[in-house]
Design a protein around this nucleic acid. Structure first.
Lengths: 196, 196
DNA sequence: CCTACCGATCGGTAGG
DNA sequence: CCTACCGATCGGTAGG
């Protein structure tokens, strides 16, 4: 009888993707060898190559599964029946939560883009642009000045992502300020600047 | 006669440091080989090892020369006889200018910290902390709330650096918005939030 | 300041 | 004759 694809094919791919994320976050894409990755999920190196054609495809899968989650969350949050300000506040909270629930993946998304081949990089970049479009819509809705000067909008949008994405360099879940509080500081600063 | 150190020893070291910065920014620390670096400055690989004991020492020199420049600029700006707000506005402008005059070094400072051995990483981290202290002083001076709640200050300080440091992922000198304008958008958002 | 090398490890693939 | 998967090893290159 011809064998069909193993029933747990997708689960195995996910297992590899997860283990690879941890290792790549720690050592970098070039520093984490395929041998490291295979060892960390108790597989032979050859078996890794059964599930992924090349090392880069593992990197792509790590990034894609993460960024598509972020995009889905962003679209969900902004669809709800809330005021524009509340939508932004919730977006910041939801993103901070997603970043910290997947710190390895987030670090890789921000640091390892250069190690993707051009076509695959394009797919990730497009997803990130879609994510930015959510905030761009908010900015256009909220500010008369930025509605009439569309060229200024991208920098403002990037200030929002700058505040949030930079947290991966300093935020500590065990520290004195909660994830939600940090998200609220970011959205508050975006809307109102420094408090009195 | 015992040879003395070549008169151009320091210039050669700088030449290597500069060439290494360009290559490491492009390929990453692990992706840029010592052979790549030596070729790009028309030296033999062995000659590189005459000026630096190890590859990591080149990375450290790239980061240290850059971060110490940033720190010097920040201290200069905030000493001037200006209002607190003007000091922050100028700090943002001066940092944006320094980032863009040394894009390779800035990218490396932000991305390659993990590739430094612990002791050397500590030196760079301390310099970055000193830089943050400049903004922390400003925040404490400016906000009653943050003066009385010191635990909240680091997140606010990091929002400032998040906005500025994140620019390296998107800002284009040839684009429609100038470096100075982007710096002003960041300081304006920090002080006042989104414009009307 | 160079050529000639080293021990080790890289990403990827062979036969079965 | 297929797919799934193994132990072993390929040609090249890394930092030193």
């Amino acid at each position: 009888m011809a064998r069909t694809q193993a029933v747990d094919f997708d689960q195995r791919r996910e297992k590899i993707t997860e283990a690879a994320a941890v290792l790549i976050a720690k050592k970098g894409f070039l520093g984490a060898s395929v041998a490291d990755i295979s060892a960390s999920c108790n597989m032979s190196k050859s078996l890794i190559y059964h599930y992924f054609p090349a090392k880069e495809d593992i990197l792509f899968e790590v990034m894609w599964s993460h960024v598509s989650k972020l995009l889905h969350l962003a679209n969900t949050v902004t669809v709800y029946d809330r005021t524009p300000d509340d939508q932004l506040i919730w977006l910041a909270r939801v993103l901070m939560e997603a970043y910290n629930g997947a710190q390895a993946q987030q670090k890789i998304l921000l640091n390892e883009m250069d190690n993707l081949p051009a076509e695959k990089r394009g797919v990730i970049v497009q997803a990130q642009r879609d994510l930015m479009a959510v905030v761009d819509k908010f900015v256009a809705l909220k500010s008369y000045k930025l509605r009439s000067q569309p060229k200024l909008r991208p920098p403002y949008v990037m200030m929002f992502f700058g505040m949030l994405n930079w947290t991966h360099t300093w935020f500590d879940r065990a520290g004195p300020v909660s994830e939600t509080k940090v998200a609220d500081i970011a959205s508050d600063m975006f809307l109102k600047g420094l408090p009195f």
